[in-house]
């Protein structure tokens, strides 16, 4: 009898929840330094489709060996999980490939912010001799052999196949790569059950240690520059890394773009949305585990040593940032 009452109560509760959940979305967001990911912009899907095929098109590289997806593998969190990427003819790149997911939300592109948007970004790998080692005239010449592709461009762009339009199509596709509907986003939108206790505890630590100062906003980072070694001397970072600073590598950060001394070691703060999926870490890809990355960040950015149980807690929180995208988790 008691069981039946309990069963019934459960049913009522479920039904009432059904009505209550839609109401939830009408609630104000929780007031937190991190905001939920916006819905993917309603972009022209045909262009995105074209962009996706170009994203996987090896003809963009000099010897037809490499596509955008070679280094930004959509199933691997939008990176290649390598310290530095391999270019044409096995050339080694100089910087760690950042994830392409949510990259549309970044305030600038590349570690040193040398591109203002995704369209500009596409020029970088294409021309880089250790990446695709090609150029637009050469690419257009190759793509011009492809009749269906030319027809697609003619359909979508008044001026057909041009470098601008290739960049636009790829950027359009990339802008659609948003990993929304993460547990954390759901929690932000009021779903109290979305996060576990441990995750919430991790989030508290993330804030109390001050990680949140830089890793905030919808992309949990990606909207400001920060010095590597804000608190501690940056030299000791490079010393512990084992390889000296090389001015030809991206170690100097934004200085390579502006030439201003005060921009030395200034880097774009990376997004932590898919941090748990995009090892290794840092601009040089020198750190292979998230634990080590958090430990080094605390030491150089916050001037603190962080106990292991706190590191683990923060990692548990970071897991709750991973959202969904058909290409990420098919």
């Amino acid at each position: 009898m008691v069981n039946r009452v309990v069963e019934r109560l459960r049913l009522y509760l479920f039904v009432s929840l059904l009505f209550w959940v839609p109401e939830l979305s009408a609630f104000d967001l929780r007031h937190e330094p991190i905001s939920p990911l916006p819905a993917a912009p309603t972009l022209p899907s045909q262009k995105a489709e074209l962009g996706e095929s170009l994203f996987h098109d090896v003809r963009l590289s000099q010897d037809n060996s490499i596509s955008c997806a070679s280094c930004h593998n959509l199933a691997k969190g939008g990176t290649d999980n390598q310290s530095v990427s391999h270019g044409v003819n096995g050339a080694l790149g100089s910087a760690n490939a950042p994830t392409v997911y949510n990259s549309a939300l970044n305030f600038m592109q590349f570690w040193d912010g040398r591109a203002l948007n995704l369209r500009e970004q596409a020029n970088g790998p294409v021309h880089n001799p250790v990446e695709m080692n090609s150029n637009w005239p050469e690419i257009i010449q190759k793509l011009s052999q492809d009749r269906p592709l030319i027809e697609s461009f003619a359909r979508l762009y008044p001026d057909g196949l041009t470098a601008d339009n290739i960049r636009d199509a790829i950027a359009t596709f990339e802008a659609s790569l948003l990993t929304g509907y993460s547990p954390f986003d759901r929690w932000l939108k009021g779903d109290a059950q979305a996060l576990s206790k441990q995750q919430l505890q991790g989030y508290r630590l993330f804030k109390s240690y001050g990680c949140i100062s830089c890793h905030q906003g919808a992309n949990v980072g990606g909207n400001m520059f920060a010095y590597l070694g804000t608190v501690n001397n940056v030299q000791s970072y490079f010393q512990q890394r084992g390889t000296p600073i090389n001015i030809n590598t991206p170690d100097y950060g934004r200085y390579n773009v502006t030439g201003e001394l005060e921009d030395k070691y200034l880097f774009k703060v990376p997004s932590l949305r898919l941090a748990v999926k995009t090892a290794p870490y840092f601009h040089d890809g020198s750190v292979s585990t998230l634990q080590e990355a958090i430990r080094l960040m605390a030491r150089y950015q916050l001037g603190r040593e962080i106990p292991d149980n706190h590191t683990e807690a923060i990692i548990i929180f970071l897991n709750s940032l991973v959202g969904e995208h058909p290409r990420l988790t098919p």
Partner: peptide, 10 residues
């Protein structure tokens, strides 16, 4: 402390 609005404005 959320820099998204300033990024947007920029």
């Amino acid at each position: 402390q959320n820099y998204d609005p300033v990024t947007q404005a920029t």
